[in-house]
Amino acid sequence: MLQTINYTKQNLIKIFVISAAFFITSAFHPKGSAAIKYSKSFSTQVSESSDVVIDASGQHIYMVSDNGLLFETNSEGKIIRESDIRGIDFEGICMADQLLYISDESARKVYSVNPENLKIVKTFNLNYNAGRNRGFESIAYNASLKQFYLISEKEEIVVRVYNEQFEQLNELSFKASADISSACFHNNHLWLLSDEDHKLMMLDDNFQVSREFTMNVHNPEGFFFDALGNLMVLSDDMAKLYQFEAALIQ
């Protein structure tokens, strides 16, 4: 019996050493992706913030939260206005034709909202039969094609393409990351953010990853590019906005 225990202990030590070696090696960022570091960070006033968007003028920033709230904030995350809309679980926001579009993930709804008064203009009901927190985590708008992209978080990651009346045009499976937490259409490319992989991906027209950036941000849930081209990343758990210099993304 004693021999069995000693033998088992030796094996446990071997497994532990192998695990430790993997741990050290995994500290390096994956091949083919560039590691970027933020230069500034700002504490946001929005609790459980889940996504963020900037308008075309680069002057107004809108943030949504997990508890179904919508805010206008300044560039450092301080609240300027709060909408009286009460949703369930706002997870994605984008702008299209001067309107805000918000994905209420659990409720499977998309609201179009007037940014002037932060009131709902129209509600679209979508159908997606997955878990409550496996609905559309992200929304982005391609102005040239006049199409919306709604993307589920994980298990599996699905990119749905809708027209402006939210009629489904296409559905694709995306497998290049563990999850998707936010999306944005910028410089004629769809960009996707992964919370679990801590990376930002730029996609080509075939929804393949053409560029990839890993970042040292915990729980990244939203992002946008400001008027200067800086990347701004929103962390839910840290309640912070992180600024990455534009030169890092060029």
């Binding site: 369930i88 409720a107 039969n129 997955a130 409550r132």
Partner: peptide, 15 residues
């Protein structure tokens, strides 16, 4: 078959 049923503000998940 994880499923979510939505009826207005009432959301039910079966898992």
């Amino acid at each position: 078959a994880q499923v979510t049923i939505v009826n207005g503000n009432h959301i039910l998940e079966i898992s």
